[in-house]
Design a protein around this nucleic acid. Structure first.
Ligand SMILES: [Mn+2]
Ligand SMILES: [Mn+2]
Ligand SMILES: [Zn+2]
Ligand SMILES: [Zn+2]
Lengths: 147, 147
DNA sequence: TTCTTTATTGCTAATGCTTCTCACTACCGA
DNA sequence: TCGGTAGTGAGAAGCATTAGCAATAAAGAA
């Protein structure tokens, strides 16, 4: 039993309650998203994962991204593209600034969820599970050359 | 010249500066998004539009959605689906609560952009063009039956 | 350990949404 | 009225994601 899968297994919630199993593929995918600090898309996860498990299939990546998302381990990000990105879900809430010029993603922390929950969700009796804020525009290096 | 296309033309910014033309198709698509208060996707716009212009093609819808977005007339929304929705861009900023149960989209107003610009974007020297906030969860009628 | 059950995988094909290509139109300024 | 060119329609192509299914392999029971 490798150190990796061990640490992953111990992280898992509800070991067998929901009938889920911790496969090597699932552990690897989660580990990759946990270690890389970027915002990976399915294909990037796939390519990384195949370096360790060459027989892994892309379907398995997609399936596990869905599963890990539902379990709350990872978050799915919707930038201005037609495919999605994924990142590990951490304790501290953060959001994104997406540059239209260079494509860079800048992160920032702001306790938005709490704020909106108090001011809006509560009034509308809406139970918030997830929050996503993204601002699009131009970063320092890109807003010289205008729009 | 119909009343519709007239009002659209007068709304248009920079009449011919950028080389853009106001075609019937473009006017119709914008008009549909302007009138419906929902969050239409490309196919819904297409179906609506074909009632008035049966020969309109889906390509034209997609092309014009992109154009109208770039011109700032409409906004592209990214819910938790893999296709996009569009709505007219109004003066007052608003955001969305998306229910995982019934799919309903609840709108609310909150001066987020101003807030974040002052507190974050300014510090990071990021020029904000667009803001999108979406919270996912369960609406009143759906959070009875738990998750 | 061995056995059983069934969640999960790897392939492949299929789907869904969006973009591209290209010949043909039609808008608009001169 | 004319010419240059943005825009259109139709279909094909491109990607991202999902579905179907026989074969594996977790995880709990014995
Ligand atoms: Mn992030
Ligand atoms: Mn809206
Ligand atoms: Zn940039
Ligand atoms: Zn609901």
């Amino acid at each position: 039993m490798s150190t990796n899968s061990k640490s992953l297994k111990s992280t898992r919630q509800e070991p067998g309650v929901s009938g889920l199993r911790m496969t090597n593929q699932r552990a690897l995918i989660l580990e990759i998203i946990r270690q890389r600090r970027g915002h990976l898309d399915a294909d990037e996860v796939y390519r990384q994962a195949r370096q360790k498990q060459p027989r892994l299939s892309l379907s398995t990546v997609y399936r596990n991204l869905q599963t890990l998302k539902k379990l709350g381990f990872i978050e799915e990000l919707h930038f201005n593209e037609e495919h999605h990105h994924y990142e590990i879900r951490l304790a501290t809430e953060h959001h994104h600034l997406a540059c239209l010029g260079c494509g860079r993603i800048i992160e920032f922390q702001y306790p938005l969820a709490r704020l909106i929950k108090r001011n809006v969700a509560e009034a509308k009796d809406f139970e918030v599970i997830d929050t996503e804020l993204r601002m699009t525009g131009y970063c320092t290096e890109c807003h010289q050359e205008g729009k």
